[in-house]
Amino acid sequence: MKEKSIIGLGLESSCDETSAAIVADGKVILANIINSQIDLHSDYSGVVPEIASRAHLENINIIIEEALKTAGISFYDLDYVAATNRPGLIGSLLIALQSAKAISFTLNIPLVAINHLEAHLYAPFLEGNELSFPFIGLLVSGGNTALYKVIAPGQMQLLGKTVDDAVGEAFDKVSKYLGLGYPGGPVIEKIAASATERKLIFPKILPDPGDRRFSYSGIKTAVINYLKSNPQCDISEVAYAFQERALEILVRRLFDAARELGIKTLVVAGGVAANGRLREMILSELRPDERVMFPSPKLCTDNGAMIAGLAYHYFMSGKFDSLNCDVMSRV
């Protein structure tokens, strides 16, 4: 390292994953330890909050130690500490935020409280992509489906979001209804790819151009209705038809917004951004003068690196949070 790097610790516990990461200068990941609780939850077809917060509490110290060890540094090398404080499950969010406060207080280093949604959209900039603003950010996960114009760190303009269910939630619910398990995304993608019959078509979601909202309640109901009246149907064909419609609206909204606003840089992040079919659909719509960034699958899930990475910019511009900052279930 030429000059001394700025080293940050990022903590994340807003939902399934407990994670601690060490990031240098907001772009180099020195350690990114993620302990997923999906095994614990898969029996339950969803995240169970009490299990989640108890497991976060049991994990967090071990994971922080592991992150420091992997990065080859000690607590005293840290310049700042960051944690997700919104949005998410209150009991779960508290574990990372309170741990970060303890570290901030003990080491006398700044605390940065981070918006989890903004951090997801930062993930590609931890993988060699040069930070550039503005960009259109599409955030797709189990709890969120939203489109943003991102102007600078801390400056996001919401362009549209779901009016009912999140896209990942629809994958989970349809998957449970099909008897395919949790999480629904990967299993539906896999079964859809194996579909030999592709004639079934579900109605378009919010087909009006100019509308920037998303909706997943209608397609969920359409799939369930179809299964009720066609109990002998081919599950893989249903999965295929559902996935095509569920993803199509994301692609349409993303490009409509980018082209209307004249923005050429796109970021697609969150758990559903790991879906291979979604990536394929976006890449085939992309024009030569447009650029899209997807985080690698590891950075699509909840992780501490995106928290530490984004927090670097807050730290550099002196935007710290006080020890009495709180968690919020919504942004």
């Binding site: 909050p49 009016v163 999140a166 279930s329």
Partner: peptide
């Protein structure tokens, strides 16, 4: 305000 499904957050 738009009311969205609180399945993930449990409560709004």
């Amino acid at each position: 305000e738009d009311i969205t499904s609180p399945t993930f957050s449990l409560m709004e």
